[in-house]
Design a binder for these strands. Structure first.
Lengths: 112, 112
DNA sequence: GTAATTATAGTACCATAAACTATAGTTGCA
DNA sequence: TGCAACTATAGTTTATGGTACTATAATTAC
């Protein structure tokens, strides 16, 4: 298991700077350093919440889509969506991240 | 599954209306019907492009992240990202959609 | 009526993705 | 300088997320 080490003061500044520049779009892409896990205090924990079947169903109904249509946009099968909503399967990895994006920012993020 | 109230015969207009209302944000969520695959003429084709290893590497470098950090945000392993970039593995399903979102809308979509 | 949907259900199965190891080059810090 | 910790590649093995298949009941459009 990895140690989540203390992020150094300089490293932390780099990350913040990179973030500002990137979002502000004021500096060209090549001027700032690459963000490595040395800079971020990367721990094992990922900032995604585990969504329950009810959560997923609520998201889908909020989007007013059938399982089939919802699955289509997520590049999944309707079959699998049904299983997710009933708690028979649990999304992990990239699928979980994708569902989190929809949950936080809406389905338009991927449809539009 | 209970449907809202009156069964209406209009089908095609509903989708357009729903789309307008959703984007316009003028009508509450419960007033329009659910979008089903009967309304959308959707079959097998998903609107995601297959990304090459070089594409993925370019995306990561544009985000100025190491494979490790990039993988972290996508909820993947650095190992797998390496294989994707070298073309040893090919993303499909939800992973492909997620990469497409990043490709079209930027990494901030999932980091922020 | 009836044909095409939606949703659930159970099983079998495969490729993605993880886990593990190892190697070589690079970077940060004392 | 030295060295620890990182990045990236590489090969092999393993596990499970997600698919495919089939079937049933209820709903909806024509």
């Amino acid at each position: 298991m990895k140690q989540n080490k203390k992020p150094s003061r300089l490293s932390k500044a780099i990350v913040e700077m990179a973030k500002d520049m990137r979002s502000g779009d004021m500096v060209d892409e090549e001027t700032y350093k690459k963000i490595t896990s040395r800079h971020l205090g990367l721990k094992e924990k990922v900032d995604v919440e585990t969504l329950t079947g009810d959560d997923i169903r609520a998201m889908r109904e909020q989007a007013h889509m059938s399982q089939s249509v919802f699955a289509h946009y997520l590049n999944l099968t309707a079959d699998y969506v049904s299983k997710l909503e009933r708690g028979l399967k649990h999304p992990k990895g990239p699928a979980l991240v994708l569902l989190n994006v929809i949950h936080r920012k809406g389905i338009e993020t991927i449809t539009g």
